[in-house]
Structure formats: structure tokens, C-alpha cells
Design a binder for these strands. Structure first.
Lengths: 218, 218
DNA sequence: GTGCTTTTGGGACAAATGTACTATACTAAG
DNA sequence: CTTAGTATAGTACATTTGTCCCAAAAGCAC
């Protein structure tokens, strides 16, 4: 009775976590050795349980998934990381892969896809949901080659996207500044740059743009 | 081997659906008789499978959960409906209950809570997640009498909706005033009333609300 | 190192938005 | 007729946003 692969599930929604555990337990090769509901606990759990694979969501209270991935990959490079999330926004995909994720799955994948993805990643390969790979390829073509009509979106910096998200959620500059430990001036600057780059002229238009780009998830 | 309760799962994320099925199947009383990934299919499925209980998400492509609940409750009033969703916003809660839901659960509930909720609802009771019931009570106290039955959206006047639309498109008050041949003051007043009624506090939030309500032709 | 971008912050000012009141005219419901 | 709600518009003031300037530290590319 030896299960081959040790898996850690990182996911904040308790029911989803329980559901995943139940699903994966059906596979005789998978051994769910632990669960975590935030990034910080996840990092500790990886240290304590040394799983072969970490299956993780991105948006979680406290330390978010991205930072956790970066950290896990730095400390335990041999641990495989598969992202499982709702977000199809470019930013999440990009940042996850950049942080060192070995795969990126959407939560509307099928159970079979998940199993395939896990096995691929465990075997040292990279796995992307079909929807996702198209985006990655497009981005690759975009950055690697001629200006295939670089959308203004691509010119936004990381910080600008962070600010855009909070603006779209209706937070005033003061709050955003506080949140990121910046001065209000800096936030205004980012906001101003956003509007210039996107050719939008007020908070409403920024919000509509952000929603269209799928930057807001509930 | 007769399972007591027939359950239909309505949820757009395939993995979550599979996870719920796996979870609920562990209970000997529950028989998962079907699944649907959108409102329209759900209604058909209720007709075809006559489940005792429908466990449903709210946000789904195509027909959303709220409308589906209303329809199911109209056609098959004896069917019990338990909402299971991420959304903790008052509006969702209110609209769901108004549509006839018998319970409202958050996805970060535990497996045990879910089981309790399902059994309560099956036994003719109403179940609310602890977090949720506080909100409902608060709203109850706030409005003065039970189930005023109106989501904030319904309280908006025609003019307010016209203004809301233009605000969400990013037009400044001056433009809106000009457009409708009003004084800027009047537009400000409508905007102010909108924010009061919806409990939103700036243009970004109004925009996000309007988009969610499908007010923008996109 | 020299440039370029990003990120950070500031001054000054104009414009727009948000809040708190008041007030009139019209309409629909009781 | 009275009351409630809608639409209109005003004063006054506080806050926020938007738009110009400017500049320095950090990181990266060539």
C-alpha cells in the first residue's frame, strides 16, 4: 500500500479544499499529505511535509499564492508547483509562471485534465490549460517579435496593474497608498500614468477597463 | 440500499462540481442524481430528475443562478434550493432569498457545515452561514420590517438609471447635464442618491455595479 | 559606465466629485 | 386632501482626482 506521490493542497475555500482532497484521493497514486489555506502556512507545510507537488490557488487572505510560489521554489527547488485558480487574466498567468510555477490550471477544467496535469508536472513537464496556452503563445509572439499590435495593456508595469486593480475596486488613493506603504503622490502618479497609457480620463473608465481585462475577481 | 435524498449540483466550475460530488457522495443519505453548469440546464434537470434539493452557485455563464432559482421555485415549489457561493455581498444574499432560496452558504464553509445546511434545508428549515445571518439580521433591523423584498436596484428611478449608465461610461457630470439638458447640480443630486441607495461611495464603484448589472452595452 | 525604465516622491493648481443641507413643482397613491 | 416620491436646482464646503511641473534611487541592458 504505497502511494507514489505526496501532494499538498493550498486553497482558502474550505469546501473546495475538501472537494479536491476527495477527488484526488480517488487516485491510488496520490497521497494528500496536507492542506493549507494561505501562503505562509503553505511554505511551512512544504518544509514539514516535503511533498512532491503543491497544488495551489493564487488569491488567498494573508500572503498570496504568487509570493508563496516564489518562496517555495527558492527554498525547495525540487518541489513541483501546479497553480489551480479561477483567474484567466494575463497578469496572473504571467506572474505565476515567472514566480516558478510548473503548471497553470483553471478551475473549470475536468477531473481528468487535473489528473493529467498533475502527472505531467510530477514528471518534470510543464502543463498549461488549453485556454491558457493560447494566451502564453500570443504573449510570446508579442514580446519576442514584431509589434503584433502591442495592446496598451502590455505596456503597463507590475505596479501600475496593482494600482489599477485597487482603483477599480473603488478604493481612494489614500487607501491604496496605505495598502502598499506608498505616498499618495506616488499612487497619483501611477494612476496618471495608467490613464495616459490607456488613453482613459477618469476612475470610471479605468474601472470599466479593468473589469473588461478580468482584473477584478470576486 | 436506498439513499434518501436526491440532489442536483449546479455549478459552472467543473472541478468544484466534481469535488462537491465526491464530498457529498461520502454521505450515505445523499444521492447525486445530476449536475448542471448553468441555469438553463439546471431548470431542465430539475424537471427531468425531480431532486429533493438543488445545490447551486449564483454566478454562471448564460442564465445566472438567481433567475434559475426563481424559475425552479415557480415551477417546482416543493424543490428545496440551497445556494453555495463565494459572494458575501448583501445584494447576492438578498436577491437569492428573494428569489426563493431556502439557504445560503459560503464556499469557505466546512464540510460539516455543508452537511448540516443540506439536512436543515431538506427538513424544511432555512439555513444561513453564520457570517451571512448577521448581515440579514442587520438588514432586517435597518429596514424596519421583514423582507422589504426590494434589492437596492429595484429602488432606482428611471432617471437615476440613465445617469448611472452615463457615469459608468466615464462621462463627467458636465457632459451628462448637457446631454439631458439638466443643471450639473441635478446630475450631482442623482449621482448622490444613487450612491446612497446602493451604498457605494465613488464613481469606480458605481461603474463596477453598472457593469455587473449589464447596464453597459459593452 | 551610459542610458532606459521603474518606482518612488514632491509642489502647485485646476477640475471634478462627494456630502449636507434647503426648496419648489409635479404626480401618483391613500 | 394629504402624503410620498420624483425631478429639478440651489448654497456651501470638504475631499478627491486629474494635470502640469520636477527629481532621485534602483535595476537592467548594451
Amino acid at each position: 500500500m504505497n502511494k507514489k506521490y505526496r501532494i499538498l493542497i493550498v486553497e482558502d475555500h474550505t469546501l473546495m479544499r475538501a472537494g479536491l482532497r476527495a477527488l484526488l484521493s480517488q487516485d491510488p497514486d496520490f497521497d494528500i499529505v496536507g492542506e493549507a489555506d494561505n501562503g505562509r502556512d503553505a511554505i511551512q507545510a512544504v518544509g514539514a511535509l516535503s511533498p512532491h507537488l503543491v497544488l495551489t490557488d493564487l488569491t488567498m487572505p494573508g500572503m498570496n499564492g504568487m509570493e508563496a510560489i516564489r518562496d517555495i521554489k527558492r527554498r525547495y527547488p525540487e518541489t513541483r508547483v501546479l497553480v489551480l485558480t479561477l483567474h484567466r487574466a494575463d497578469e496572473y498567468i504571467h506572474d505565476s509562471l515567472r514566480a516558478g510555477a510548473d503548471g497553470y490550471m483553471l478551475k473549470d477544467a475536468t477531473q481528468d485534465e487535473l489528473r493529467v496535469a498533475i502527472r505531467s508536472v510530477l514528471n518534470g513537464k510543464t502543463y498549461l490549460s488549453p485556454d491558457i496556452s493560447a494566451k502564453v503563445i500570443y504573449a510570446y509572439l508579442g514580446t519576442g517579435h514584431v509589434a503584433t499590435g502591442t495592446s496598451p495593456w502590455d505596456t503597463l508595469t507590475h505596479r501600475e496593474r496593482e494600482v489599477l486593480k485597487l482603483v477599480a475596486e473603488g478604493n481612494p488613493n489614500k487607501y491604496i497608498a496605505n495598502y502598499y506603504c506608498l505616498s499618495v503622490k506616488t499612487v497619483e502618479k501611477h494612476r496618471s500614468n495608467l490613464m495616459k497609457k490607456l488613453d482613459l480620463h477618469n476612475a470610471s473608465m479605468l474601472t470599466a477597463y479593468a473589469i473588461e481585462k478580468g482584473l477584478l475577481a470576486s
